[in-house]
C-alpha cells in the first residue's frame, strides 16, 4: 500500500532546499520506524515521491509525498509516529491510505495558492493596483530560466488575486513553475513595473498554502 501525505515546512525551514527537505523527511521516516519499501539493488533507496520544489525562502503547508509501504499501517498511526520523529518546523497535516494501483497524483498539481503580506509598515497593494494588473491582457515579465533571462507573459499564470478584507493580506492562485507558471516574487515585481506601488520582495512574508489540481480540487479529499 501507499500513503499520500501532506506536510508543512515552516519558519526557519524555509531556508532549506527541496533536496535537504527530502533527506530530512527520509531520516524522520526511518526514525519513526515507518515500514518503507526500498528499491532493489546495490544501494537501495526508499520508494517515495515528492511534490515539485517550493522555492527557497517560502514557508509552506503545501508539501506532499507519496510513500510506498511494505506493511499496512493506518493513516492515524502513520501521522502520529511521523510527527513524533519530525523536526518541530515540519508537521504532517494529513495523510491518506491508498492502494498500490491508484495512479500517483503529485505530478498532476498545477496551481499554487499563496498568502502574501508585508512584514511591517511598508507601502502596500490596494484593490486598484490589483485591478490594473488583472485588467491587462499581457503582462510581460523577465523570468530566469536555465538558459538565461526570458520574456514571458505572466497574465495567464495568474488564476486568482484577492485582497482580503483586512486590506493587508493578498491571496493568489498561480500556475506552478513545474507546468510553465511562476513563483510569487515575479507577481510582486509586476506590481512594481505596471502599477504605481513600490514594494520590496524582501519585505514581504509569502506563504505557500496549498497546491491544487487543474480543476481546482485538492490533492487529499476530506
Amino acid at each position: 500500500m501507499r500513503m499520500l501525505v501532506r506536510f508543512s515546512k515552516e519558519n526557519d525551514l524555509r531556508f532549506i532546499s527541496h533536496l535537504d527537505m527530502v533527506h530530512a523527511m527520509e531520516r524522520a521516516l526511518r526514525r519513526a520506524d515507518i515500514p518503507m519499501a526500498y528499491s532493489k539493488g546495490f544501494s537501495p533507496h526508499a520508494k517515495i515521491s515528492f511534490s515539485a520544489p517550493t522555492p527557497l525562502g517560502i514557508p509552506s503547508s503545501a508539501e506532499y509525498m507519496d510513500v510506498h509501504l511494505v506493511k499496512p499501517l493506518s493513516a492515524q498511526i502513520f501521522v502520529q509516529r511521523l510527527n513524533n520523529a519530525l523536526p518541530n518546523d515540519m508537521r504532517v497535516l494529513e495523510a491518506m491510505e491508498i492502494d498500490d494501483d491508484v495512479p500517483g497524483v503529485l505530478g498532476k498539481a498545477t496551481i499554487g495558492c499563496y498568502t502574501i503580506q508585508p512584514y511591517e509598515g511598508v507601502q502596500w497593494i490596494s484593490q486598484s493596483h490589483i485591478n490594473v494588473l488583472m485588467n491587462m491582457n499581457d503582462i510581460i515579465m523577465e523570468k530566469r530560466t536555465k538558459k538565461g533571462l526570458k520574456e514571458i507573459n505572466i497574465r495567464p499564470c495568474i488564476k486568482e488575486l484577492i485582497l482580503m478584507q483586512d486590506g493587508q493580506h493578498i491571496t493568489a492562485k498561480l500556475l506552478l513553475p513545474s507546468v510553465g507558471g511562476i513563483n510569487p516574487d515575479i507577481l510582486l515585481k509586476a506590481f512594481n513595473i505596471y502599477t504605481d506601488v513600490r514594494i520590496d520582495v524582501e519585505d514581504m512574508a509569502i506563504h505557500k498554502d496549498d497546491i491544487l489540481l487543474e480543476d481546482g480540487r485538492v490533492l487529499l479529499p476530506e
Binding site: D12, L13, F15, I16, D89
Partner: peptide
Amino acid sequence: KPARYIGNEY
C-alpha cells in the same frame, strides 16, 4: 546555503 546559519537541526 542559508541553512548553515539557522541552527534548529534535529
